[in-house]
Design a binder for these strands. Structure first.
Lengths: 338, 338
DNA sequence: CTGAAAGCGCTTACAG
DNA sequence: CTGAAAGCGCTTACAG
């Protein structure tokens, strides 16, 4: 049998109400009772029953996290950040995977509803209007993390993909590159795909370079996508001196087939990645990459929803700062015009 | 206000008891009532309150997962496996991070106790006797995943580290190597550290090679650990033709400094990794590595505890199969004796 | 400062 | 097949 508040009450000769009060630190008892209750609780090995507590408080001290189960490098970082912030504030986190294509999102939301989570973080997956409606029905604070809903006023926390892509491309241009490829563009991904594409194009235009569709390779964010793109460049004998990759994984993909073909990075080809996961550092040569602060995003995002829960206030979207971290995969080349 | 079972009862003119029965599919009602209850539930948008349910059933449908927050590559894989199995059986998972050094383990266990989790998975961290006592006090099924307690009869699910290290080393020997380094040995890690060390040594001995302590570099499982080891080999001008690394990360570390020094992999140095995470494939050249099936381990492990919960039976330890996946980081060299 | 009582939303013997 | 009732372990007005 489990030890309950009543057991403590019996042992200490006070009412369960008082036990509850001291255990919850709400005041309304003198020091003597406080001491004996706490001592009895410790001696009996009391563990409070969160279910009972949740039931009466109509809240669970739970933050729900919905994430896709793709094994991306940053999954752990985001989770770590979220868990840290939650733990600090006395919340626990419960997670549910949305499937690779987000097909299980409704199920996830239902689950979160049953668990009466106090707040919800939807990370990394794109949701649609139907999902949004379900989430809103929950009437709890929620936040899109490292994702967003275009054209909808839904709170999110993420890096500005347009700017970051612009910066990455601009960095290449600054270093004298004029034929710059874009690798891994997902046209169906309106959050990170097309936005980065726009940033890339704009950087080109702003610097008087012509956008050439032959230089962009569609794909996804994976390693193989990068490999396929590089193979395709090779086969088509595309002339380029640099590529901007939509993720570190695809960057490593292009580097790997480049290596197989004796193409030197950065001497023959400069490459910049995106995410700045650990593999950017592991790359040979180490990869220049756009840093997304995933751990901080998890932490900050979770704090935002907790604040909203506690102060019953609205969550405002926030842009996280990105940085370009330079390593050794970009070469400065001389301008042809000189 | 939330819709409850009573609301459905009122609308359908049956008792809450009956509503509960049809919602839980326990039988004891005719088709007509079943239909109207289900319909009313759907119409009202009923969501059951798991807290209330947990309270009366004295169980939560929750599997607790305790993991360190190191951002290892396989974190996501393990979690994915666990979540998949849990979800399939109607369980949710709640996670708590144990800190890098496991210092927060007691706190994690306390939390799991309060949540009344039905089962517990402790992944990847080493626990001590004190922790074990706390866990056992919970009186719920639990399992150590990808870790174990030496000298204690505690159920675990993992790969046989000794055998795997033996296999890795033996693979190198088969390919004609005689001076084989061991990189990343953690002498304090009695689970994976010393065990892999033993496997390495035994493989040497069984093949008539002398164990040379100068060939082993202590460290941890990280990238930098591999870098430091390689630098140290270089500085000491250690003669060796191959290294067995305790993780892919350390393997990439040695490869990266090797590259900086113009040392060709595998021509000048063969290397085999451990874990077979995605980076093994991303490595240049692609890394031969011991595969640990993390996703399957998560899935299988979670299934084991769920089975134990359902059938109230003991959990028996299980060994997962590992495999050596050969890629291009090992070179066959001619035996000197010929 | 403290207690009696009601109630959170559900499940489950028990009785019919 | 169905309902009335008790109870899971807690919190929180209310009253003193």
């Amino acid at each position: 049998m489990n030890i309950t508040i009543k057991d403590i009450a019996r042992v200490t000769n006070v009412s369960p109400a008082t036990v509850s009060r001291v255990l919850n630190n709400v005041g309304g008892y003198n020091e003597a009772t406080r001491k004996k209750v706490l001592q009895a609780a410790a001696e009996l090995g009391y563990r409070r029953n969160e279910s009972a507590r949740s039931l009466v408080k109509n809240s669970s001290n739970l933050i729900g996290v919905i994430m896709p189960q793709v094994s991306t490098l940053f999954y752990g970082d985001i989770m770590t950040g979220i868990e840290r912030a939650a733990h600090q504030s006395g919340y626990s986190i419960i997670i549910s995977h949305s499937g690779n294509v987000g097909d299980k999102i409704p199920e996830c939301i239902k689950l979160m509803a049953e668990r009466k989570v106090d707040g919800l973080i939807i990370a990394t997956v794109e949701i649609n209007d139907e999902h949004l409606a379900m989430v809103q029905e929950l009437r709890i604070p929620y936040l899109l993390l490292a994702t967003r809903m275009p054209d909808r006023n839904v709170p999110y926390l993420k890096v500005n993909d347009f700017d970051a892509a612009y910066t990455a491309t601009h960095h290449l241009i600054e270093n004298g590159h004029e034929k710059i490829g874009l690798v891994g563009l997902s046209l169906t991904d309106r959050v990170a795909g097309t936005t980065r594409f726009e940033g890339y194009k704009r950087a080109l235009e702003d610097n008087g370079l012509k956008f050439d569709p032959h230089l962009v390779k569609e794909g996804d964010y994976g390693f193989y996508s990068g490999q396929r793109a590089m193979q395709s460049y090779l086969q088509e004998k595309t002339e380029l001196t640099a590529v901007f990759c939509v993720s570190d994984d695809v960057a490593l993909g292009v580097i790997s087939v480049a290596a197989d073909h004796g193409i030197q990075i950065p001497d023959d080809l400069s490459v910049v990645g995106y995410d700045n996961t650990i593999i950017a550092e592991m790359s040979i040569p180490p990869l220049t990459s756009i840093d997304q602060p995933f751990m901080e995003m998890g932490e900050e995002g979770c704090s935002m929803v907790i604040d909203a829960i506690r102060h019953k206030q609205k969550i405002y979207s926030k842009i996280m700062p990105y940085t370009l971290v330079e390593r050794r995969s970009v070469k400065q080349i001389t301008h042809k015009i000189f």
